[in-house]
Simulated assay, not measured.
Amino acid sequence: MADSDGVIVVPNRRAGEIVNLAVERKNADDETRRKIKGGESVLSIKGLRRVLEEKGVVEVKGTWLDATAGS
């Protein structure tokens, strides 16, 4: 298989599986793009906002800051 990004060799016995995984990935990427175009942030879509907040990182006026750092 080849495209403008490169070439990959897939064993024939796994071709169907690999195609299915690629289609799943493309669908997930399409859904992420749709959400971003709808105004959602990548942090929220991927569940990273919660992870950052658990680590003590907070959003202040659209910028993420380490709340545990000294001033």
Results as ranks from 00 to 15, higher is better:
Glu17Thr: 06
Glu31His: 12
Arg25Trp: 09
Val60Glu: 03
Arg25Ile: 05
Ile36Asp: 00
Ile36Ser: 01
Ala2Leu: 09
Ala69Gln: 13
Lys26Leu: 02
Asn12Leu: 10
Ile18Met: 07
Val19Phe: 01
Asp30Gly: 06
Pro11His: 14
Ile45Asn: 00
Asp66Thr: 05
Ala22Ser: 14
Glu17Pro: 00
Lys61Asp: 13
Asp5Glu: 13
Glu53Trp: 10
Ser71Tyr: 11
Asn27Asp: 10
Arg49Asp: 15
Ser71Ile: 11
Ile8Cys: 03
Lys35Ser: 01
Glu59His: 04
Glu24Asp: 13
Ser71His: 11
Ile18Glu: 02
Lys61Met: 05
Ala22Arg: 11
Val58Ala: 02
Asp3Pro: 05
Ala28Arg: 13
Val23Pro: 01
Lys61Ser: 11
Val42Phe: 11
Ala22Val: 14
Thr68Val: 14
Asn12Glu: 06
Met1Val: 14
Ile18Ser: 11
Pro11Met: 06
Trp64Ser: 07
Glu17Ile: 02
Lys55Tyr: 04
Glu17Trp: 01
Ala15Glu: 10
Lys26Trp: 08
Gly56Glu: 07
Val57Cys: 08
Asp29Ser: 10
Trp64Val: 04
Glu40Trp: 11
Lys55Trp: 04
Ser71Gln: 10
Arg49Gln: 13
Glu54Trp: 01
Ser4Lys: 12
Arg14Ile: 12
Asp3Gly: 07
Thr32Leu: 05
Val10Arg: 03
Ile18Leu: 04
Asp5His: 15
Val42His: 05
Val23Lys: 11
Val58Pro: 03
Gly39His: 02
Val57Lys: 12
Ser41Phe: 07
Arg33Thr: 12
Ser41Arg: 10
Lys55Ala: 05
Lys46His: 07
Leu48Ala: 15
Glu59Asn: 05
Val51Met: 11
Leu52Asp: 02
Leu65Thr: 04
Glu54Gln: 11
Lys37Gly: 03
Asp5Lys: 12
Arg50Val: 13
Ala2Gly: 10
